[in-house]
Design a protein around this nucleic acid. Structure first.
Ligand SMILES: [Mn+2]
Ligand SMILES: [Mn+2]
Ligand SMILES: [Zn+2]
Ligand SMILES: [Zn+2]
Lengths: 148, 148
DNA sequence: CCGAAGTTGCAAGCGATTTGCATTTAGTCT
DNA sequence: AGACTAAATGCAAATCGCTTGCAACTTCGG
């Protein structure tokens, strides 16, 4: 298995120390897969293993090292997810019903190219595609209630 | 000319009152075209014409009425732009150099369809596409400095 | 062992946005 | 017009995700 997405190696090569708390953070991030806020991430740690401030600071390092992607939610809160080879860039869906941020399928090559074309003239480093609406689960729930 | 993008009519039909301060706000939003924050918007008003809180509250109404689109910047700040027929949905570019949020060309029909396809299964109401990187101006500036 | 560089927790600060509330307006009906 | 009701407004205070300052602590190279 690709140890924590080789994050440790990349970090060390950047002069960043991989401390016990940081290993825990990487493990949580890696195991979750989906988007997660700094506070949620902190909540998943064993009590007392790291201060919330430490989480924020490490996330900033990870984003700078491009090991983690940041997605800005409409709620004004930052969401994070691993950016390793197991988790290529993909669009997200923000449900106005339940508030969840759901990961969508990866763009196919051609679609990706077409989208990137709109950034022509500028130096594009990343693209964030976020849909908004009602997720399938909330739709189902609404339908039920409509019947009952 | 489409008076203030018919916003007034839509608002009234929603039981929302179009007061003098709100007319001013609509005019600024309409004349600007691009993305603008609540505070910037407030700054463009004649002094004393409306409190910043009023701006926030009216923007919330406009977004709910779908007369204005909201884009969440990575800086955690909300940006707004008119969503009238003169200003169809389009991607944006966030420059990491100068911090600006730049409007990009409107998606062509086919590209739009392809992108929307990724939201399949959910009820999509809107899509936000935001590129990040270095804008053409900042690139030019960097090149100059490299020479000098 | 020593010093430089990196990390951590705690407390305090920051700043965009929201909320409570009393006051003022706009719209409606008589 | 006068009365009544819902909506809008300003001000102050609160919220809350996030950042900073700083002193103590750890790690690593030599
Ligand atoms: Mn995702
Ligand atoms: Mn725009
Ligand atoms: Zn949902
Ligand atoms: Zn720029």
């Amino acid at each position: 298995m690709e140890t924590l997405c080789d994050a440790t190696r990349v970090l060390k090569s950047n002069g960043v120390r991989v401390t016990p708390a940081r290993v825990l953070l990487l493990e949580v991030l890696h195991s979750r897969g989906g988007l997660i806020t700094a506070q949620e991430l902190h909540g998943f740690l064993p009590a007392g293993s790291a201060d919330l401030v430490t989480v924020y600071r490490f996330l900033a390092l990870l984003v700078k090292a491009r090991l983690v992607r940041e997605v800005a939610g409409t709620d004004g809160i930052a969401y994070y997810e691993m950016a390793c080879s197991h988790n290529p860039v993909h669009p997200h869906f923000e449900c106005l019903g339940c508030g969840r941020l759901i990961c969508l399928p990866v763009f196919q090559q051609e679609d990706s190219e077409r989208v990137y074309a709109y950034g022509e003239g500028h130096e594009v480093e990343s693209v964030s595609v976020v849909f908004r609406g009602t997720c399938s689960e909330c739709l189902a729930k609404a339908t039920e209630e409509g019947k009952g």
